[in-house]
């Protein structure tokens, strides 16, 4: 199952989708905050969001799974 991975360490600033949302390639799904800068994370696969593994304010490491897409 495709997953959205955090490309850099940081804090989850905003989650722009909810479970059940249909997403397309290149959609902005999550905004991470690192070094006081917002970094949008884009979707790599089209599909439906089945699980959101983080919540806003969480600290994430590089490679952590943020969202699972079915």
């Amino acid at each position: 199952m495709p997953e959205l991975i955090a490309p850099i360490a940081g804090n989850v600033w905003k989650i722009l989708v909810a479970v059940g949302d249909k997403v397309e390639l290149d959609d902005e799904l999550v905004i991470l905050e690192a070094l006081k800068m917002e970094t949008p994370i884009y979707c790599d696969d089209a599909g439906t969001v089945t699980e959101i593994k983080v919540k806003e304010g969480d600290a994430v490491n590089e490679e952590d799974v943020l969202i699972v897409i079915g």
Partner: peptide, 26 residues
């Protein structure tokens, strides 16, 4: 630090939005 690294990250992501240069620039 870290203004220049942020700036690199931003210019890099303008060229390729899947380019996350922040930590490399640090």
């Amino acid at each position: 630090v870290p203004m220049a690294a942020r700036c690199v990250h931003k210019v890099g992501s303008e060229a390729n939005r899947r380019n996350y240069l922040l930590m490399f620039a640090m």
